[in-house]
Design a protein around this nucleic acid. Sequence first.
DNA 1: CCGCTCTCTTGACCTGGATCATGGCGCGGC
DNA 2: GCCGCGCCATGATCCAGGTCAAGAGAGCGG
Lengths: 243, 243
Amino acid sequence: MKDHQPAAQQAGRPILQGVSLRGGAGGGRVALLDAAGRDELATIGTLTRFPRGAILQAEGEKISAIFNITEGLVKTYRLTEDGKRHVLAFLFPGDLVGLYEDYRYLNTAEAVNTVTAYRLPIAALEKLLERDPALNLAFLSKACHDLRQTQRHEIMLARREARQRLLMFLNMLAPQASAIAGNPQGAVLSLPMRRLEIADYLGLSPEAVSRGLHALVREGKLRLHGLHQIEVLDRGDLAALTG
Amino acid sequence: MKDHQPAAQQAGRPILQGVSLRGGAGGGRVALLDAAGRDELATIGTLTRFPRGAILQAEGEKISAIFNITEGLVKTYRLTEDGKRHVLAFLFPGDLVGLYEDYRYLNTAEAVNTVTAYRLPIAALEKLLERDPALNLAFLSKACHDLRQTQRHEIMLARREARQRLLMFLNMLAPQASAIAGNPQGAVLSLPMRRLEIADYLGLSPEAVSRGLHALVREGKLRLHGLHQIEVLDRGDLAALTG
DNA sequence: CCGCTCTCTTGACCTGGATCATGGCGCGGC
DNA sequence: GCCGCGCCATGATCCAGGTCAAGAGAGCGG
């Protein structure tokens, strides 16, 4: 009986998280908007700063705005009924935060370290979307990209083995890596997140994450520089399992 | 440097699987298109029949068409480099099959039992999408719904315990259930898929699926009628963990 | 510069489910 | 109806990783 309503009203205007607005040069991520489009979004945004632990949005909350990260790292997660926390994604500078459906956020987004982001009020964004069909299509394209990313994450979780999960995780971070002098094969990854956060992302215990990383060190594949810098000695090893 | 190109060309026109075109009464699933929209799609489709095991689309293959299932069950899966198979989703009548990106299918779709579906040639569909902005929006809305579904699946896989996974799986099938005479709490679920297929969906071994189901039977929560019919004695138990 | 606290690391133990193996059942073909 | 093959059930064993516990850094405030 609802068949005669326009589809949009029933499903409630969802918007995606994890959309990247960065230029292609950022490595790995795909540019979605041209420069003009990004400027367009920037005009309606106001720069905001979040300390570690700040909640950008809470699961189930009415939406007010979405964010375009310019600096820092954000994690999105959902809590299960038995109190566990599952991290769905880490979002980097250039990514959009704000997946919602029926005008409520679908998951919680929290700053992992100090984050700065453009706050885009939802009303303004909607107005923009109405005017610009290309922007709409951009969102649809990115929806698929996100979905694919989530599927990949899902597959990683299904095939157990902690070791593989860790390697895939490092591989995921590879695009963010900076090259290292003297070793063309190597790269330095920065892991701003805590071990527990990695564990919640990989479906492991923090102990397993720690053990796994140190096992890789013992095998000579990694070197740790403090807790948040990892030097990858042979990038070929991880590249093998992009799935 | 690619910044000046329209976004759509870079991302390659993706289309989603798992979109439901059914009426709202089907239970659980959301109607996305009004009657007119569904008719519109039907006009460009031709009814096709697939026996069990038939491949509707193969991962990596160039796209030619997408399908709208009218009868039977389809599974989509991807193979991991180590030869394991991971089932991403089961698709029911009313669902669309044909997730692609850059004009290649992202995963394989296979008929679980005898399937009939409308075959929608991609060229015709694209023409339709260009003409109809509401249809576009419908796809975006459904993209989010799919993403949410996938996230839920992901969380299920992350929190281990075989028992929970099975319950959530049964819960997922609940909307397809038929009521049973004499027991308002109960319902009969049909599981057309094999144990191995369930296992590949839940990230378990087939043995674990079998054991888990029979454990639930022993606890008096289920009753099995043959291999493909399950009677749920107390629906309340599973309903508790919709996540 | 010191000390407090939070996080990470490492060890010991235990358990859930994978794996292997065997036997039973259902179903389709003849 | 009978036979054969593939799927399912169930038992035995093993091990990856969860859990619990204790010690070591690291980072921060005072």
